[in-house]
Design a protein around this nucleic acid. Structure first.
Lengths: 163, 163
DNA sequence: GGCGGATAGTAACATTTGATACTAATTTGG
DNA sequence: CCAAATTAGTATCAAATGTTACTATCCGCC
């Protein structure tokens, strides 16, 4: 461990001493770095669904959610995609207009709607998902198995702390 | 290693076998999880500068950048804050209108402007930064030293892969 | 069993954000 | 040197996003 000269580059490097002359180095500030990375990743994935298939981020989330099941009540979509109800409503309208989903009234709650993928939507899902998964795999392949595991754990911890 | 029953929870869990019936589980999809976490963190930090001091995210970034130096050419702000020139322009206008920064023409390039914090701006910086740093510290304190270190390394690797 | 409050979804409006294109100044290279 | 291409910054318009409030339905409780 003799060569440890640049310790200051790691996370949570404090600025000055205390309270008073505190300095925040943006390039090392964790929230900034995380926002930046998330944006980079988001952009890389958006190439798949946005440029090739003209979906918005919200539409993509809904499609991704729906791919795994035959149908779902619209009211459940928000919590599962981290979209508010207005975003869900607009995403649904967009997807319906393009023939990707259909909506029918929920017999158990006549305020609500039940969404399902059309055959077109299912075909789209099958076309996009392999690319999306490939992006994820390729990206994560720069990490060692141990790094991926710790990253996973760290993200869970941080998310739980804020939830 | 006998108790390893829930391997499927970790990062990069593949869906089905190959190509065909591939399934993407949004809750486990790394780009989604990262976007979600970044949003949570961003929101937590925004409490500091937004609710208390009525700054936008972009204004906050510029302020944070400026706090460390006496002045800077506007054209350097974009690259250092990951904001495009329109966002920088608007943030500057907002900060100037509130007396937080002043701008003067750059004598070396009469198209450009040079920004610096006013005394008011400097006072604001000194008031906000300790809170912002405290948030970061508190958040990262849920991680062990080793987790923080690996997280730092993983973020660098991922960012470099995409940059 | 019906009245008060909650919930699902959307319309309509306000605000933010992004894209385009313009002005003025600078750099390039012929 | 000077015309052509580039750059800094902003105005202007278009699109996306957030906010409020409305309708219809449902739930809980007196």
């Amino acid at each position: 461990m003799a060569g440890r000269t640049n310790e200051a580059r790691s996370l949570a490097a404090k600025g000055g001493s205390e309270g008073e002359g505190a300095v925040l180095d943006l390039q090392r500030y964790f929230p900034y770095r995380l926002a930046r990375l998330a944006e980079q990743v988001s952009l890389a994935v958006a190439e798949v669904y946005s440029e090739r298939f003209a979906l918005t981020r919200q539409e993509w989330r809904v499609l991704a959610l729906l791919g795994g099941r035959s149908e779902i009540a619209t009211k459940q979509v928000g919590p599962l995609t981290t979209l508010d109800k207005m975003q869900v409503s607009r995403a649904m309208q967009g997807l319906e207009a393009r023939g990707i989903v259909t909506r029918k009234s929920d017999p158990d709650d006549r305020r609500g709607l039940i969404v399902s993928l059309t055959p077109t939507g299912r075909a789209l899902y099958r076309k996009i998902v392999p690319f999306a998964l490939a992006r994820e795999t390729k990206l994560l392949s720069v990490l060692t198995a141990e790094e991926a595991e710790v990253l996973d754990r760290a993200m869970r911890k941080l998310s739980a702390e804020l939830g």
